[in-house]
Amino acid sequence: MTIELRSVSRWYGNVVAVNDVTMSIGPGVTGLLGPNGAGKSTIMHMIAGFLPPSRGELTVAGQPSWHRPAMYRQVGLVPERDSVYAFLTGEQFVTATARLHELGDPAATASRAISLLDMGAAADRKIATYSKGMRQRIKVAAALVHDPEILVLDEPFNGMDPRQRLHMMDLLDKLGSEGRTVLFSSHILEEVERLSGVIQVVVAGRLAASGDFRAIRRLMTSRPHVFTVRSSDDRLLGGALIGRPAVTAVELSRAGLQVRTSDYGAFGRDIAVLARQHGVRLREVLPADESLESVFAYLVAS
């Protein structure tokens, strides 16, 4: 079960949102990454069957996705928009979805999907009372209720806390290793640290990079970074940080510490350990100059 894009373009009037993208997404987990406005959503909408390509050919499981509701028997879709039937309970929502798919035992299939997403405890509550992360998860439960071969998730990590994010990544990995085709989009590369698989990077409507997740992540984390750090004792912390190999410069200013590092991942681990060792309380660790465009531009350049 694959998703194929061949020279797909999409424009709105004079504005080209997606420019001549060709990619093939097979079984396993694939991340579609890129900054906001890069054309990710447009690609996701076209794959999901909610937007026709202006040019090119796009097929899901061998047939065009546009104007083909029968496709949803094989495809589960998690839309980005948060709007769900908020007046239903989580269980009613997933059960109704099972009924819309005309599944044999809607209640049983729904409760299986709900427990897969760890939503059993909140299933009896109205969706209106859910947090954003819980809404995401109940949407995924609904998308999985008919056991689809292909799962398409638009920005699934939005609004999730770190624990929920890890849980979701594990779930996606599991679904991918079962041989399903799992495609998700995200605009934050760091969000998807745990996933294995393939990523496709879209910048300015074009496919800018594609390849193995780990290789691209390594590129990501080993690029130079500047962080602004505020703590209960900046001088003490700065002194300790400069002793680490990952840190190349430390500047003490009134606004806090400016720390230059050559390794994003190592710095993150180091600062936590050092702060604890020296009894320094961290108030803020902010990546400076962290516009996503610069991150992706770096990726594209390498």
Partner: peptide, 9 residues
């Protein structure tokens, strides 16, 4: 929210 309904057969 119509997407949830339309993403079914």
């Amino acid at each position: 929210s119509i997407v949830h309904l339309l993403a079914t057969p």
